[in-house]
Design a protein around this nucleic acid. Structure first.
Lengths: 231, 231
DNA sequence: CCGCTCTATGGTACTCAGTACCAGGGAGGT
DNA sequence: ACCTCCCTGGTACTGAGTACCATAGAGCGG
């Protein structure tokens, strides 16, 4: 519906003008004029003024959705991690564009809001995929896992956007390992009150106290049906 | 700066008109007219058209911030849980208003976006508090915990808004127990090497096995510096 | 070469959100 | 009675977004 080169010219013009004179001070007419097209063409290419700084949003969303759709039935968790990795590499490929957008979203409230709404669409995609696949056996657990992956992704991405950290992909892999350890290690929710595994777990924190010091309370807790927290 | 009763009349008028004839079809002038005030007064009471369906947003945000500010230095995690509980109880108190808003945000894209942006402000508040308090010893771990609490809160809230589930506060408490078990159980990303409380907690799940049956592994776990999960 | 169609484009006009500014009016104090 | 302060409503303006129409050019069949 709209020329591709015109779209790119509009994007470039918009970023330039936003940096030069600010977002509010730039009208859509200014952008269109610099790109050498009419105002109408701008609105045909991007539904709204703030869409222009997220030129690949829709296509990336589709790419992640396709990735999820292609995932093997038993590969839900890896697919989620891969999906997050897809988003991260996309930002890395954008390079300076992504960083320019970050600068803008940090300073312009309207753009920040638009960005948040976009990120939420990813989060929702991840969440629904996790819930549909029944990851964790429990919708809440599925949401927690999906959102933890998204959180870790955002954490790494934000560091890269700020110019902190050397190798974002390496950081991503480490962060994902953290997240998966978190979820893999605990056995998930369903503990007290919910259906109880025949062999329940005993989770132990490091302590400086002797085992003997905590044993009395421990014995009491195991005898009692109610879970307890000992000092 | 603006009469309180006028604010309430505007809110009521807006909800009524949005339900009757739709959000886009309702102009600010319509709302002001039904409330018996001028258009100018509307914009003085609410910065924008979509703010009118979140009349307590700002005050609730302040309440949570105050709660965090008042938290004891060693009570970071409980404060986060309490903050989330504060938000939940606020929605429960709103009752039908919250449900009407939910209906609107599900159907009107502009309102959905506005809601997401508002929720993000809570999430950010929680995240920054967790990071500042150094929860988990590691910024990533802090973010994961904060976002997990928010996710669990949203999960419970959403169920209540949809009319699913009987006792949201009970569900909330169970969900929080799940979340804390998740994070308490694995030692988190910081794991071995992170700062450890002098008095660590031992969380016990119900088990069908004798204490003697798990004791050897338990002793081993306490002796070892690394957290372990026993069957 | 002419005429036809289809699509991308630009222009015009309109609605409405949001802002700036000004004028009036009532409450309360002196 | 006068003055001040604050709340309020009205007016006028900018700019985003939409609807509609006119046109130019590309491609195609005759």
């Amino acid at each position: 519906m709209v020329n591709e080169s015109a779209r790119e010219r509009l994007t470039a013009a918009a970023f330039a003008l936003f940096e030069e004179q600010g977002y509010e001070q730039t009208t859509v007419e200014d952008i269109a004029a610099r790109a050498g097209v009419g105002r109408t063409t701008f609105f045909r290419a991007f539904g709204a003024k703030d869409d222009v700084i997220f030129p690949h949003h829709e296509s990336l969303l589709v790419a992640v959705r396709d990735r999820f759709h292609a995932a093997a039935p038993d590969a839900g968790v890896p697919a989620i991690v891969e999906g997050a990795r897809l988003v991260l590499t996309h930002y890395l490929d954008e390079g300076d564009l992504a960083r320019a957008r970050y600068r803008l979203t940090r300073t312009v409230p309207a753009l920040r809001q638009r960005e948040i709404s976009g990120l939420q669409q990813y989060q929702r995609l991840f969440r629904e995929f996790a819930v549909d696949r029944g990851i964790g056996g429990d919708p809440l657990h599925a949401e927690l896992l999906a959102n933890a992956v998204v959180t870790a992704h955002n954490y790494v991405l934000r560091r890269w956007l700020r110019g902190v950290g050397a190798d974002p992909l390496d950081e991503f892999d480490r962060a994902m390992a953290d997240v998966l350890r978190l979820f893999g290690g605990s056995g998930g929710p369903g503990g007290p009150g919910g259906p109880v595994d025949e062999h329940a777990a005993v989770v132990v924190f490091r302590t400086t106290r002797d085992l003997d010091a905590v044993l009395p309370g421990l014995r009491l807790a195991l005898a009692d049906a109610t879970p307890e927290t000992l000092s």
